[in-house]
Computed example of a mutant assay.
Amino acid sequence: MTHDISLTTLLVLCVAAAAAGWIDAVVGGGGLLQLPALLVGLPHAAPAYVLGTNKAVAICGTSAAAVAYTRRAALDVRTAVRIGLAAMAGSLGGALFAAGIDSSVLRPLIMAVLLAVLAFVLFRPGFGAAATVPALPPSRRRVLAAIGVAGLGIGFYDGLIGPGTGTFLVLALAGILRMDLVAASGTSKIVNTCTNVGALVTFTVQGTVLWQVALPMAVFNLAGGATGARMALKRGTGFVRGVLVVVVVSLVCKLAFDQWGG
């Protein structure tokens, strides 16, 4: 299935993986770049293979970012792991449903997610610009709500489709647990690593991972994730928000043309 992929295409996918890892580590949403890039670069692959390959790549950058945040930021790792375990269960369920998704359905779904994230970023210009004042430890009720929404709910979405999971997690964690954005971003990486593990296990068992493409992309994604996490802790996310808007608009136009153009 991968014999007709040119070296140029593979190199472009590797660059996209590095950029996705960087974006995902800083503000979340790296899948908004990586998954559409795989759809464009692997036009003849079945959706399940594209999704499985995407997970095999994404887990590397997300894990690297999670380690970087844990070492350098004050995170509630215990709460993050609890949410992550629920997210893993959700992603396992989502991945099982993903095998039956048709490409004619997958592209519009991704475009809808892209437009929703774009609208949020544009109408909330203050998002990610600065950290808020740290809140008191969250109540048990809020933790349970985070486990349900950020864990099971977003975890299921991550296994089913995936793009925007990191951004959705940051928003959910900041809103429900009243975290500042740096803590929410770091916590989301721990949770997202768990969802990636759950989904990847399912895709691997089903044999829907193109390892010849995933392995080289994973190296670049890991480097991007580690670099992005370090930059997020030092410089904030204002610049990345601008880049994300440009990338999202470009990808929406590209996917719309692929779906309805020509």
Rank of each mutant, 00 (worst) to 15 (best):
T132E: 12
L160R: 08
L177Q: 10
F120W: 11
L96K: 14
A16I: 03
N54R: 06
T227V: 14
T193V: 10
P43A: 02
A37M: 07
V77R: 04
A20S: 03
G261A: 12
L200I: 02
A45Q: 13
D102H: 09
L233T: 11
G238K: 10
L35Y: 11
L160E: 03
L144I: 07
K55H: 13
C60F: 15
T8G: 15
G166P: 01
C14H: 03
G90S: 02
V213N: 02
M217L: 03
F120T: 11
V243Y: 05
T165N: 02
L32A: 00
G166T: 07
G31L: 01
T2L: 11
V248Y: 00
I190Y: 08
A86C: 15
I147P: 01
A150I: 09
L115C: 15
K234F: 07
P125A: 01
V197A: 12
V191S: 00
I59K: 08
A183K: 10
Q259T: 09
A256M: 01
L7G: 04
K254H: 05
N192C: 04
T187G: 12
V113Q: 04
N54H: 06
G236N: 00
A232T: 04
L109R: 01
L11Y: 09
F120C: 10
L251I: 08
A89P: 12
A99C: 14
Y157C: 07
A174H: 08
C194A: 05
R241Q: 13
P108W: 00
G224I: 08
L75P: 03
A95E: 04
G225F: 04
V149F: 12
G30P: 06
V67I: 14
P138C: 04
H3F: 15
A131I: 07
V121T: 09
M179S: 10
N221V: 10
T70G: 05
W260A: 05
L181Q: 06
F120H: 13
G94K: 12
F168G: 03
G84A: 06
K234E: 13
L210N: 06
Q212L: 13
G186P: 03
G236P: 00
V205P: 09
A184E: 13
V121R: 08
S104V: 07
F120I: 10
M231N: 10
V117N: 11
T165S: 11
V27Q: 01
L144F: 06
Y49I: 13
G164D: 05
G175Y: 06
